[in-house]
């Protein structure tokens, strides 16, 4: 059943020409990006809220969250619904490609900055064949300290 302890399964997706992965244990489902209601007054990286089968779920624009600017919408745009610390939230990505299995040995600690993304959001990087997959730390992405939130809000104003 499980090949070697600690094997990691990643949901791999594209965002701004880069390939990222998140731990599949955090991922609840992947849905099409539609029907997002924008929230006035929320931080810029908050895309809005969606109706996920009767629940109202916040969705973030992952590109903005990572400080990569905006990304365009296309046929392939998806929302990855994740569960972090008991809360459910979504993140908009350019397209989901596959589920990868990795051994922890394949993962290297992240350099201070990869492709413009701060190491604070990263779990590491992995070289899979020819590709570099950037492993995101979902808990960090959805962790908002009070200070940060305030800073975001004041930047808005």
């Amino acid at each position: 059943m499980d090949k070697g302890r600690g094997e990691l399964q990643l949901v791999v997706f594209r965002l701004k020409e880069q390939v990222y992965g998140v731990d599949i244990n955090h991922v609840l489902e992947i849905i099409r990006a539609a029907g997002v209601t924008a929230i006035p007054g929320a931080p810029a990286f908050v895309e809005g809220v969606i109706n996920l089968r009767g629940r109202v779920i916040p969705v973030i624009d992952l590109a903005r969250r990572l400080g990569l600017g905006t990304t365009g919408r296309s046929e392939n745009t998806r929302i990855i619904i994740v569960e972090v610390g008991g809360a459910t939230a979504g993140m908009v990505v350019d397209g989901v490609s596959e589920v990868l299995r990795l051994s922890p040995d394949d993962i290297q600690p992240p350099p201070a900055m990869v492709a413009g993304v701060s190491a604070a959001f990263l779990r590491g990087i992995a070289l899979v064949g020819e590709r570099l997959v950037i492993l995101l730390d979902v808990t960090r992405i959805f962790h908002r300290e009070e200070k940060e939130a305030l800073r975001e809000l004041s930047r808005e104003a």
Binding site: G35, T37, I39, P40, G41, A42, V46, G48, V49, I50, N51, G54, R55, V56, I57, P58, A87, T88, A89, F142, R144, A149
Partner: peptide
Amino acid sequence: IKSLGGYLGQVPGLSGATILGDGKVAL
């Protein structure tokens, strides 16, 4: 009434959200 969720917390000017008949979220 549905809450906007702990992640968003208190958003100024809004007190929650609701789901409309067409499935869209209204604030």
